[in-house]
Amino acid sequence: EEPGTYGVALYRFQALEPNELDFEVGDKIRILATLEDGWLEGSLKGRTGIFPYRFVKLCPDTR
């Protein structure tokens, strides 16, 4: 996996908008950016989108 910051999904998130990223509990999401209003941008399984930061637990930065 690529170096960078990752978050592990604490809850299932179902995308409601085309720019959102849906995921299941336990998915490991690569964090790409921190956005305003409590949203993160991340990538998972070749898809990129935004999601609420409270749905993931950030992992320590590992290489």
Results as ranks from 00 to 15, higher is better:
Ile29Trp: 01
Gly42Leu: 07
Val25Ser: 07
Asp61Pro: 13
Glu41Tyr: 09
Glu1Arg: 12
Asp27Val: 00
Thr62Tyr: 11
Ile31Gly: 06
Gly49Phe: 02
Ala9Tyr: 05
Ala15Met: 04
Glu17His: 15
Lys57Ile: 05
Leu44Cys: 11
Leu40Pro: 04
Phe13Lys: 10
Ser43Trp: 08
Asp37Thr: 08
Glu36Asn: 11
Val56Ile: 11
Ala9Arg: 01
Thr48Tyr: 03
Ala15Thr: 14
Ala9Cys: 02
Phe23Trp: 04
Leu58Asp: 08
Leu58Trp: 07
Asp22Met: 09
Leu16Asp: 14
Val8Ile: 14
Pro52Leu: 05
Glu1Trp: 05
Glu17Met: 11
Pro60Arg: 09
Tyr11Pro: 02
Arg30Cys: 08
Ile50Cys: 09
Asp27Cys: 01
Gly4Trp: 09
Ala15Gly: 14
Ala33Pro: 07
Cys59Gly: 10
Pro3Glu: 13
Glu2Gly: 11
Pro3Leu: 14
Ile50Asp: 00
Glu2His: 15
Ile29Phe: 05
Thr34Cys: 08
Lys28Trp: 06
Arg47Ser: 04
Tyr6Glu: 03
Gly42Val: 05
Arg54Glu: 12
Phe51Met: 07
Val25Lys: 14
Ser43Glu: 15
Val8Phe: 08
Ile29Thr: 04
Ser43Gly: 03
Ala33Glu: 05
Asp22Lys: 12
Leu44Ser: 09
Lys45Thr: 01
Tyr53Met: 15
Trp39Thr: 06
Phe13Pro: 04
Val8Tyr: 13
Leu10Ala: 02
Arg30Pro: 11
Pro3Thr: 15
Asp27Trp: 06
Ile50Pro: 00
Leu35Glu: 01
Asn19Gly: 12
Glu24Phe: 09
Leu21Gly: 00
Gln14Asp: 09
Pro18Ser: 12
Leu10His: 05
Leu40Tyr: 09
Leu16Ile: 14
Ser43Thr: 15
Ile31Asp: 02
Pro52Phe: 01
Glu17Val: 07
Thr5Met: 14
Glu20Asn: 10
Ile50Gly: 01
Ile50Phe: 04
Glu20Trp: 14
Phe55Gly: 02
Phe13Ile: 06
Tyr53Pro: 15
Thr48Phe: 06
Glu17Arg: 15
Arg54Phe: 09
Gly42Met: 00
Leu58Ile: 12
Gly49Asn: 06
Phe55Leu: 11
Gly42Asn: 00
Asp27Asn: 07
Lys57Asn: 09
Tyr6Gln: 00
Gly46Tyr: 01
Asn19Met: 06
Pro18Arg: 13
Glu24Thr: 09
Pro18Glu: 13
Trp39Gly: 03
Gly4Phe: 13
Arg54Asp: 13
Ile31Ser: 00
Leu58Thr: 09
Arg12Ile: 02
Leu58Ala: 05
Gln14Ile: 10
